[in-house]
Design a protein around this nucleic acid. Sequence first.
DNA 1: CCCCAAATTAACCGGCTAGTACAAAATGCT
DNA 2: AGCATTTTGTACTAGCCGGTTAATTTGGGG
Lengths: 225, 225
Amino acid sequence: MNRTTAKVAGKHSQSWKQDPEGVRRDILDVAISEFAARGLSGARIDDIVARTRTSKRMIYYYFGDKDGLYARALEVAYSKVRRGEEELDLDGLPPLKALEKLVGFTFDHHRANPDFIRMVMIENIHNADFIRKSDVIRGLNVAAIDTLRNICSRGAKDGDFRADTDPVRLHWQISALSFFNVSNQPSFSALFGPDLFTDTQQKILRDEIIRLVVGSVRVSTEPTK
Amino acid sequence: MNRTTAKVAGKHSQSWKQDPEGVRRDILDVAISEFAARGLSGARIDDIVARTRTSKRMIYYYFGDKDGLYARALEVAYSKVRRGEEELDLDGLPPLKALEKLVGFTFDHHRANPDFIRMVMIENIHNADFIRKSDVIRGLNVAAIDTLRNICSRGAKDGDFRADTDPVRLHWQISALSFFNVSNQPSFSALFGPDLFTDTQQKILRDEIIRLVVGSVRVSTEPTK
DNA sequence: CCCCAAATTAACCGGCTAGTACAAAATGCT
DNA sequence: AGCATTTTGTACTAGCCGGTTAATTTGGGG
């Protein structure tokens, strides 16, 4: 955006455009990838700067300090991902189909956003202190639960879902299976080989998870015992 | 073990006992807790030392450098946990009951060993590089799969299990649900409240998971559709 | 009881890294 | 034209932190 760089006499003699939002985005994009890759304490401000069009000074100008940058990066990462989820249209579908679609989508979406997953992992290492401090992030997540609550109540009314189905617990299940698939891929494939993460195996896993979750709420899961 | 400390004249004039194994264990115990708490780059050698009976020099004497200490700490953490699993006796049980017990145990065991979980999280942030380098750890884990393979083959023979049940994929399921419950507790309870992690709710979750996993391998999960 | 490798101690060092100081200039809204 | 905001650039520092130096004690073997 800037960088017209016309080295002239005096000390300062660049030509550039003002673009506060652009600069912020630039910094945040790099920051997300750097924090996701190396963690909060592992990330280096200088490394972030190096991958940016701007200077170190600007990071402190806009974000105050490392923690401030991290906090904002986390929020942006969350927003990006949750925004993708909003595009999913489930209201038109019957509850079981809607759930099926949601689970499949979540599985895919997590796989497609490893940086986000890593940010959440890192947050958990830090006891989710920054998530706790961010109203933005909390807001984004109640929305996710609302979607599920909607599906659940429709499903209960139709008699398709078990009466004791709890949206939060359901979200927990879906998240657990989709999240772990990405978060623990390195250790899992280090220990048991990379086979499970090939496209074909992942397709099987995806179907299995859908079956699992849908099966766990369906009322006709037949008399266990 | 040492620390008889009788401050006398000259520069070096402490009194101490030799206890190599004790010192190593001491250091490793603290290291596990410190690395688990703050991660590889977040952990401070000086902080580890401070919680030890020994001196900084001893860490380098026995473990070479920070990475060396981390690598050993990881191995010890793994060994401890897997050792606990060995005590479980499943061979006497019919396959479905054995699986049920294994899932319940894994869920409990993960909850009881948060430091281990955190070490694995940290490893995954670091692409499991240290796990990959450790034959010890890989060895411990093939054993875990063997247990499952045994159950699976017995279950298949009895006709209780679906024919396409894969021990690794099954292990993946069990791990995902049990692991996530601990690893993502901070973020999850930050976002949705701590209710899900009370004893009563965890009991429900535990049962649900058992139902889920056992249901996913049981042959009579009735014709879906 | 003496020797020597192994074990242990305390003080020290050098580089890395978050954050700052300073100084100036271009921008663009009003 | 005025003026707050945005941006540039470089050099600097303070302190943290991984790793080291070098001396000293221990205890088993001969």
